[in-house]
């Protein structure tokens, strides 16, 4: 576990802001203790400082995971969020997309959301805005970015993609080997 470099910290917060905007503040200043982002084997973990201290007993190789994994830095220093970040993204998300029950399963298999699968969408979301995808009964299914702004969505024809798929909870099964 090591601190994130300044550069990586910046990348991380930029990315976070894409999805949860100003709510990033709430991840840092928490009433129940200090929480911090740490890097371990290129992966970013978000964890309470109390737990972090205890994890220092373990060797670099032996330690597998502490707290919640947010994502992984690629070799080119780009951060890709994993589905595991959804636990924190979903409650703080500012822009949301709801998919119809008929499209739920499709999305969980990694498909982009077409207009026909769109159940509901937050107002005023611009193009390429990071959004969290929910099912109609408010089950967080994953996240992605909007392919069209909200206004464009209204006029789009049924088959055009409105939201690009980035990550979905189906990956817990599909990508268990590569995720962790």
């Amino acid at each position: 576990m090591k601190r994130l470099s300044d550069e990586r910290t910046k990348i991380l917060f930029e990315k976070l802001a894409k999805y949860i905007g100003t709510n990033v503040q709430q991840l840092i200043d928490r009433p129940d203790g200090t929480y911090c982002f740490r890097e371990h084997k290129d992966r970013v973990y978000y964890v309470s400082e109390r737990i972090l201290k205890l994890s220092e007993c373990f060797g670099y190789k032996q330690l597998v995971c502490v707290g919640t994994c947010f994502g992984k830095f690629s070799k080119t220093n780009k951060l890709k969020f994993h589905i595991t970040a959804l636990y924190y993204l979903a409650p703080y998300a500012q822009y949301k997309v709801w998919v119809k029950p008929s499209f739920e399963q499709q999305f969980l298999y990694g498909n982009h959301i077409p207009k026909s699968g769109l159940g509901r969408i937050t107002e005023n979301a611009g193009q390429y805005q990071g959004v969290v995808v929910f099912s109609m009964n408010d089950l967080a299914l994953g996240f992605g970015v909007l392919a069209r702004s909200t206004t464009e969505c209204k006029t789009a024809d049924p088959l055009t993609t409105v939201c690009f798929h980035q990550s979905d909870i189906g990956e817990y099964i599909r990508a268990e080997d590569t995720l962790f």
Binding site: Q62, C69, T84
Partner: peptide, 22 residues
């Protein structure tokens, strides 16, 4: 097998865990 532990913990929303392979 430890991968399954990590996956399950994340899926179930467990944030207070330290997973180790000792």
């Amino acid at each position: 097998r430890i991968k399954a532990v990590v996956a399950n913990f994340h899926r179930l929303g467990i944030v207070n865990a330290i997973v180790s392979c000792e």
